[in-house]
Amino acid sequence: MSGFLQRWGVFVVLVALWEAAARFAEDAYFPPPSRIAEAAAELWFSGTADTLFLTDVVFDHVVPSVQRLLIGWVIAGVVGVALGLALGRSERAMQYCGPLLTFMRSIPPPALVPVFLLIFTLGTQMQLATIVFGIVWPILLNTVDGARSVDRTKVETSAVFRVPRTQWIFGVVLPAAAPKIFAGLRVSLSLSLVLMVISELVGTDNGIGAQMLLAQREFEFPDMWAEIVLLGVLGYVFNTVLLAVEHRALAWQPKQEHAPTGTTTTPAAVATAGAK
């Protein structure tokens, strides 16, 4: 794994450069990484041994944030895939719903935050609604696309052998759509992180976003940076885990080239999610 070493090597060098530059500049807005790390340790890892040294902040803010994100993502995934499979296999339904779906997908998800604020007022409900409603479209549309891609011969093969409905859906349509579904899930995952933050920035006092805003208001810039880094790490970890799952789930595919940056989304996948 020399590539792995090399990557982290470059990373370490870059952090060192950043440290030097930040110390040299002495800009309050841009603290050096060491201060950020200190702030992070203070914020999250100064707890007692019985909580594995995690602080209350972790349990009161980080965990709820991540919970909302994952729950929202799972709900959107289940709803999007289920609806997508149904719509994708029904010519008629798609004719009726297609234009509506295209429009719903076109609404920039953050624009929905105020709508849900009015409906649910503040709180977890509103945040979940924002996440689910904002990210369900890429999953849904990708699933529709994938479900439609089952070719005629496979449809006929399944019909000839009179496979039961469940086998048809879970044994044929779902696996055929799986590559597209995963592309949609990946796009939705990064979008859900965005929406999680936004929904926490609009006047709640709970969650990573709210903590970040608090740090900014109190001019605790190292804390604010720590939250930024935390969000980056979360995004990285989720994406890596999802890619690993995808890799296993789609192991049956002939070896395909991956995007040059390895763990990031392939443009083809992004493009798919963007297309109607």
């Binding site: 990064s190 805003l213 900014q216 980056g232 979360l234």
Partner: peptide, 9 residues
């Protein structure tokens, strides 16, 4: 992976 909105503050 850093979401752009995290940079708002």
């Amino acid at each position: 992976p850093i979401p752009s909105v995290a940079l708002i503050p």
